[in-house]
């Protein structure tokens, strides 16, 4: 079993290296013009230079900051509002259909509305991130509350729990898996919307960095920025997956 896992890792790295090698070959033979596809070495050099000497690091932090801020705000709102809607079957019947209708709306389509309300600034970007990131967690929370074991509801009635007690003693703990699943999706959405917001408003961040790099034909910088954005996505995904496992460990 253990040998298999080592082999998995070796093969995985081998595949990744092969991919890099193909990339290297393509740029060396100039199959694709260097303006569009820089060599891996040039990309790594641009990444290193940008992080050490340039302003790639503050830009990365700005984007992460925007993403996390919007995500936390959205999660708080979503869990609070979701609990209030989810705890009452009547509220669900009235409100949920509207929410389900709003959910497939592309969150980026709200950007023009946000621009006309907030203007082209960072609070607009934050507003859009929050709006987009609210849905997965909100619907997750409502779903979690709606599917509480009926016997637990009966118990809470027997114990004459107040609605508040029910929310934080039975409802929320029950909804945790759904909330966490929603929050994972929300984080992905938050990163996407933070980048879109930066592309439009030229606020400090990686979105702006890659756009400027593309506009001035600095392909290596462009790829370095894309690489960093991928890394942010990767790390945040893994971080939440690990947190998920820790928090839900009691369930299994």
């Amino acid at each position: 079993m253990k040998r298999f896992r080592v082999l998995d890792i070796v093969l995985g790295i081998l595949g990744l290296l092969t991919l890099l090698w193909i990339w290297h070959l393509v740029t060396m033979l100039e199959l694709i013009p260097r303006v569009f596809l820089p060599s891996p070495a040039a990309t790594i050099a641009a990444l290193e230079w940008g992080l050490v000497n340039g302003d790639l690091l503050p830009q990365t932090l700005a984007t992460i900051n925007r993403m996390i801020q919007g995500w936390l705000l959205a999660s708080l709102v979503a869990i609070a509002v979701g609990s209030l809607i989810g705890v009452s079957a009547i509220a669900r019947a009235y409100i949920q259909p509207t929410l389900e209708f709003l959910r497939p709306l592309p969150a980026s389509a709200i950007i023009p509305v946000a621009i006309s309300i907030f203007g082209l600034n960072s609070s607009m970007v934050l507003g859009v991130v929050v709006f987009g990131a609210v849905w997965p967690t909100l619907l997750g929370t409502i779903h979690g509350f709606a599917h509480v074991e009926p016997r637990l509801v009966e118990v809470s009635r027997l114990l004459q729990m107040s609605r508040w007690e029910f929310i934080y003693k039975i409802g929320l703990p029950n909804a945790v898996p759904d909330i966490l699943a929603g929050m994972r999706l929300s984080l992905t959405v938050a990163l996407i919307l933070a980048v879109v917001g930066e592309l439009l408003t030229a606020q400090e961040g990686l979105g702006t960095a890659v756009l400027h790099a593309a506009r001035s034909y600095r392909a290596a910088d462009l790829y370095a920025g894309i690489l960093l954005l991928g890394l942010i996505g990767l790390v945040s995904n893994y971080g939440l997956a690990i947190a998920d496992k820790r928090i839900l460990a009691w369930k299994n």
Partner: peptide, 19 residues
Amino acid sequence: LSSWSVEMLRPIPSVALIP
């Protein structure tokens, strides 16, 4: 062979490719 490459490439947000 593809597992690592997929894990690395998939999280790149599509909007990052707009520029």
